[in-house]
């Protein structure tokens, strides 16, 4: 995230947030993607700040601050097309978030939306991304013990339960026929619960879509596999095995149809692995 922040500060001409927001609230830019700018705000978008200290902490309202996702207008495209796309994408992201929230998948709770301006408010997830967390764990284990056997044992004790939980979370998503579209280790965040355990939360539904095809879900998993291979090359294979273990177990809790679904997805995943995400074709 630090790198992103630095990059965001370096670039000169940032598309402007609507003035009523940037003037009223203390917003901090935390990342800049191709499509959206992500800001952090301590204050709730519409609850008065005087409430925050005593009321918010005793309510279901998130105390970890808020995230504002802003899709700025793209001056290169026709104004009508731009307005239509911004509205459509903002709404579809919010719909996905809401649907997943109702289904009990761990996603950021959404607070408010302004589709015409391309603004989504949601709760901030306080915790490291899966990528950062694994890097931290690997480093710690390397410091503590030196032989590979005891390192593996330690990884099995710490990293494995988390990855199984992550796999389980993704299975819930796929069971609802929701495809994330950009599953990477940075889009999985670990939230520390009150009892100290970690709970995976899936963020960024900007590319998500509803799909009943096993193919789309297999590609989702494949994209995540590639992310593991490029960011954690040392133990990628082991991590993927654990993750899929949790994924299949998640489906295993369902009825026969769920198991059948899981089998179909695994079959497709094999095929996708062989050919890569792209078909060999010419237009």
């Amino acid at each position: 995230m630090n790198d992103d922040r630095k990059k965001a500060e370096d670039s000169e001409a940032l598309p402007a947030l609507p003035k009523y927001l940037s003037e009223a609230l203390d917003l901090k830019l935390i990342s800049q993607g191709a499509e959206a700018l992500v800001y952090f705000s301590k204050a709730h978008p519409y609850l008065p700040a005087t409430l925050s200290s005593d009321v918010i902490h005793n309510s279901p309202i998130s105390p970890a601050g808020y995230i504002l996702k802003f899709r700025p207008p793209k001056p290169y495209r026709h104004a009508l097309l731009d307005a239509q796309l911004t509205k459509h994408r903002t709404l579809s992201e919010v719909r996905s978030l809401y649907k997943m929230m109702l289904a009990g998948v761990h996603v950021p709770m959404f607070v408010a939306v302004d589709p015409r301006q391309g603004l989504i408010w949601m709760e901030n997830i306080d915790g490291p991304s899966l990528k950062k967390w694994i890097w931290g764990q690997e480093e710690e284990i390397e410091k503590k013990v030196s032989d590979e056997d005891s390192r593996l044992t330690m990884r099995e004790q710490t990293v494995k339960p988390t990855l199984v939980a992550v796999g389980h979370e993704i299975s819930k998503l796929h069971f609802m026929d929701m495809v994330h579209g950009d599953l990477t280790t940075s889009n999985l965040v670990l939230r520390r619960k009150d009892d100290g355990s970690l709970e995976p939360v899936i963020i960024d539904f900007g590319l998500s879509q509803q799909s009943t095809l096993p193919e789309d879900k297999a590609v989702d998993l494949y994209v995540l596999e590639r992310a593991f291979i490029s960011t954690h090359p040392m133990h990628a294979e082991e991590y993927i095995t654990w993750l899929l273990e949790g994924y299949l177990a998640g489906f295993g809790q369902g009825k026969k149809t769920a198991k059948f679904k899981a089998r179909e997805i695994m079959k497709k995943l094999e095929a996708v692995r062989l050919r890569g995400r792209k078909r060999s074709m010419v237009g």
Binding site: G33, A34, E35, K74, Y76, R77, H78, L81
Partner: peptide, 18 residues
Amino acid sequence: QETIFAMLVEITERAMAH
């Protein structure tokens, strides 16, 4: 033109960010 070129510019921008 406006529609298909906007699509092309969008995926190019994504690759640049990536």
